[in-house]
Design a protein around this nucleic acid. Sequence first.
DNA 1: ACGCGGACGAGAACACTGATCTCGACCGGA
DNA 2: TCCGGTCGAGATCAGTGTTCTCGTCCGCGT
Lengths: 254, 254
Amino acid sequence: MPTEPPDPATGRPAGHRTPSEPRPGRSAGSIRARVRAEMVDEIKATARRHLATDGANLSLRAVARDMGMVSSALYRYFASRDDLLTALIIDAYNDCGAAAEAADAGVADRADLAGRWLAVCHGVRHWALAHPAEYALVFGSPVPGYSAPQDTVAAAARTPAALIGVLADGHARGALADPGCDDVDPALRTDLARIRALIAPALPEALLADGALGWTQLFGAVSFELFGQLNNGVDARDAYFDHQMRRITGLLGL
Amino acid sequence: MPTEPPDPATGRPAGHRTPSEPRPGRSAGSIRARVRAEMVDEIKATARRHLATDGANLSLRAVARDMGMVSSALYRYFASRDDLLTALIIDAYNDCGAAAEAADAGVADRADLAGRWLAVCHGVRHWALAHPAEYALVFGSPVPGYSAPQDTVAAAARTPAALIGVLADGHARGALADPGCDDVDPALRTDLARIRALIAPALPEALLADGALGWTQLFGAVSFELFGQLNNGVDARDAYFDHQMRRITGLLGL
DNA sequence: ACGCGGACGAGAACACTGATCTCGACCGGA
DNA sequence: TCCGGTCGAGATCAGTGTTCTCGTCCGCGT
């Protein structure tokens, strides 16, 4: 007699049933739930440690071995290797976003828009250099079969939101002129309008587009540096990055 | 008695010996060499086909199976899976660079610097959208243990050289003002000077740095689009990309 | 307080993978 | 012609993700 009922979603017998909250509705503060959460955290921690050396092809078995367990035991906590990677991706998005937000918050003079923008840029780069494997996991080539679930989008938006926030604040202070784009594709205008409604309702579309430009430039620069595209070319990484970010700052009118 | 001598480089017996020109000095046009080259091409072609579906984790065995061979036979032509990937990477670099050069060459009015720059940008993006797996292989997160051999740098330089070439040509025509950077880090100046000597000796350093900025922006935008960072955000991909590239064109003074 | 059901982890199994080694067979070049 | 080197097949090894089964054990609801 099977101890677990057939999965209502798929219909098949489901030996182990998809985990992550094994029973949907239960007292959240129960002992079981707490040790389970601790176990999940420990798995993610050791997986992150392996990520630093093995990159995106980390081995479930190695992680389990490192914890004195057997690989199949991990399936109690993550439905698959991709599920574990997804959890790490979400954490990395949040870490990166938190670093960006903290960098902005660290600037005392809130009116120094260029200083705040540069602080966010350097904060992101600093986080990326400190966690290259997690950065690569998030901003590198996606795993072939893998499609980012909806859970990631909220976490993914934090860093661009921090950047746009600087522009929005500057605009609110009246310190930022609208560059004014007359000939913008209408389809792009609807995209910008939708994003604006979510992030910064008062920001002119042209400034939002410029923010996206800076966002792209920031991660393009960090990716080039971390992914080896600057090897055999640029050695003064700090100065190179700073120069590029300052140039963009000028373009943005900060 | 072993038919093949011990590898002089490593000293170990070397069962199969590292391939790629099995015997260094031989008549280059021999029949054996020709069929071997055709075989290498066929392997790369089927590997590229698999790359499109399986991404970076393509399977040697699957490639061999697809060719009616056995996996061990592939080791006659590539020392390892990484070696095959390296060959694909070099090809991809060259393809991308060729696309960039062709796009520039396709602009009739050589004095239309902005048009040429935008043509190169769109050419690169077009190539990337047509070959997403190869793009990811080259510009995505590098394989953990993998370190790009020196062979790749020449091929890797073609695309940025095409971009810088537009600026250098514009400068030679006197159509490009030197933005003039006074406060540039001396270490970065030496980097720029070294690159300038290789690519465009007459180009002012500030313009070279701006070219690198545009180069970064171009691949940042393409990577964001291909790696899914624009999902759930921007739908008008063409207009978005074009807008960003035009904005950079303005910054560059084209 | 107690007993039961469900969560847990071990272990075996399956279908894969990259890599190595051995061994015939073949055939281009001298 | 004939021989040596190249080739491809097959077996093998270590390692992987995933699934399934089966005891055990303990927190939870009664």
